[in-house]
């Protein structure tokens, strides 16, 4: 599904990713762990197509296509979803309008008919329950005045509605208390199936107790320095990142 080869990327002229190789198949959950500044968020943002990040070398193939040639919206149309580390507040745009527009744009791009407001509301009801989303948040402006936990839940709720093929969760656990963490993780787990894949970017092992990965990769100084199974996460928790230097 996703194959990253020798990816080098920079922001503001500073090279952050220094040759990443990663292969993700359908049905898999990959965790990317690493200390602050190792390049985790850069990787997530490059995958989503954020223009501030400059790709210096390497390539990313996604279902046989060169991902780097696609605009962010085209990537979304093809099933890529980034759950933001810092979800953006958009005053004046209601959550439900925003999500329906996104939903319909993805459908349009895939040759499907758009869905009207009433049917859309029916469709999202069960997804709201999945992440215990408060109904009143739907008519409020996107993320405006949401608590940290509500913002993160809103990301997973959007993911549930848009049903992406490849989800990238960028530090989704940061700033969550244990209850919110459980809700978010339950949501992610419920959406897992053999056709989609998830990349979980995180600093701590905590989230991985709830979202159990098939593979764990350690990102350090812009490179993946170690890969392994889920037990690698526990080892990191115990020893910290220093032993990898």
């Amino acid at each position: 599904m996703l194959e990253i080869s020798n990816l080098k990327a920079a922001i503001d002229g500073k090279e952050i990713l220094k040759g990443i190789n990663l292969k993700v198949n359908p049905g898999e959950v990959h965790a990317i762990m690493g200390p602050n500044g190792s390049g985790k968020s850069t990787l997530a943002n490059v995958l989503a197509g954020r223009e501030e990040y400059e790709v210096l070398a390497g390539n990313i193939m996604y279902n046989g296509e060169n991902l780097l040639e696609l605009d962010p919206e085209e990537r979304a149309h093809k099933g890529i979803f980034l759950a933001f580390q810092y979800p953006v507040e958009i005053p004046g745009v209601s959550n439900v309008y925003f999500l329906r527009t996104a939903f319909n744009e993805i459908r349009k791009a895939n040759g499907l008919e758009e869905i009207d407001a009433a049917n859309f509301l029916k469709l999202i009801r069960s997804k709201m329950e999945l992440v215990e989303m408060d109904k009143t948040l739907m008519n409020r402006s996107v993320n405006e005045g949401f608590s940290g936990g509500e913002k993160k839940r809103n990301e997973i709720f959007q993911m549930a509605v848009l049903e992406p093929k490849l989800s990238i969760l960028d530090e989704t656990d940061s700033g969550l208390d244990i209850d919110a963490l459980r809700i978010v993780a339950n949501g992610v787990n419920a959406l897992r199936n053999s056709n989609n894949a998830t990349v979980v970017v995180t600093h701590y092992q905590r989230l991985l107790q709830y979202i159990v990965p098939d593979f764990v990769h350690v990102l350090y100084n812009g490179q993946i320095v170690k890969s392994g199974g889920k037990e690698l996460a526990l080892e990191l928790e115990e020893k910290g990142y220093d032993w990898l230097k």
Binding site: G49, R50, E51
Partner: peptide, 30 residues
């Protein structure tokens, strides 16, 4: 227009022009 809001909308599948239009409309709405 807020670049990060623009990217957020695009990352969810809203095309650039439509995202611009939504944010501009939101600016006027109050």
């Amino acid at each position: 227009l807020d670049e990060s809001a623009l990217f957020y909308l695009r990352a969810r599948g809203v095309p650039y022009k439509k995202a611009m239009s939504i944010l501009t409309y939101a600016f006027a709405e109050e």
